[in-house]
């Protein structure tokens, strides 16, 4: 399930919906991304997430399909917000449900790493020094590259 939305999300309700009435699910792992107050050494007043409508859904669908092929999962959930957000607000929710816990941790980690480097989002940070676009980090690409040479599990 993929949701790209401006409005906030209720983590408890979303995870309940992911679980549904499926009693074969033994565990759900989730990750919640928040707007951090400090950007480098500056205090952030807000952040605006811009996206490429249409392509965002396509790219995330591919990432989700790859996770579903790679691990034995019951289901996954990806919610990504766009628009202007304040420090402390929720940006992203990623969750994976499976019969056993190990695959849910791995799938969740995989999903957030790929969202970060593949989903067409751009962040504009507002600080007392003005507005600036967040540059991509090499460490994010390294995280994705590591998934291409996975350890045996």
């Amino acid at each position: 399930m993929i949701k790209i939305q401006q409005k906030n999300f209720d983590v408890k309700a979303e995870l309940e919906a992911l679980k549904g009435n499926n009693h074969s699910i033994g565990g759900i792992c989730s990750f919640i991304g928040l707007v951090r107050e400090m950007a480098e050494n500056k205090k952030l007043s807000a952040m605006t997430l811009e996206q490429y409508p249409g392509m965002t859904e396509k790219v995330i669908k591919k990432i989700e399909n790859e996770a579903l092929q790679r691990w034995s999962l019951h289901s996954t959930l990806i919610i990504h917000r766009f628009g202007r957000l304040k420090p402390g607000e929720q940006i992203v929710l990623v969750a994976a449900a499976s019969a056993h816990r190990e695959v849910t941790f791995e799938a969740c980690h995989f999903l957030i790493d790929f969202l970060k480097t593949r989903a067409p989002f751009w962040k504009l940070e507002e600080t007392q020094d003005g507005n600036s676009w967040v540059a991509a980090r090499d460490s994010d690409e390294t995280a994705v590259a590591n998934w291409k040479h996975p350890k045996q599990v």
């Binding site: 991304g33 928040l34 707007v35 951090r36 490429y52 392509m55 990504h80 940006i91 992203v92 957030i112 790493d113 969202l115 970060k116 480097t117 593949r118 989903a119 067409p120 989002f121 751009w122 962040k123 676009w133 967040v134 540059a135 991509a136």
Partner: peptide, 11 residues
């Protein structure tokens, strides 16, 4: 055709 900077999604 779309032109943009490297993406910075997630958190």
């Amino acid at each position: 055709i779309a032109f943009f900077p490297p993406v910075t999604g997630g958190r």
